[in-house]
Amino acid sequence: MEVGLTQILFLSTALFFIGVYGFLTRRNMITMLMAVELMLNAVNINFIAFNKYLWGGKLDGVFFTIFIIAIAAAEAAVAIAIVINIYRNFGSIDAEDADSLKL
């Protein structure tokens, strides 16, 4: 089978929903963060594939991808700072344990 846009979209959709599955099942904050990174990667693959196959000669998809990668790096750094602070306060990074805002 000739590889085209459809096959790449299959890959990115599957990767995105693997990330969704991980985000819904995991309760550990670091593994949830890893699932979010998988979803962001799926989005990046989509942007690059559309830029290559349907938007030849222009660079909009490439720039979206570069900015998404930069924002993902910032997001991961802030998220891990928060996770480590939660670990200091609660002694655990399980999402169910950090419930002091609950009534």
């Binding site: 085209g4 846009l5 459809t6 299959f10 196959y53 490439v62």
Partner: peptide, 15 residues
């Protein structure tokens, strides 16, 4: 995705 056809699908060259 499978039902949709992409018109003008042409891989562009290097960047």
């Amino acid at each position: 995705i499978k039902r949709n056809e992409f018109f003008g699908e042409q891989p562009s060259g290097e960047l």
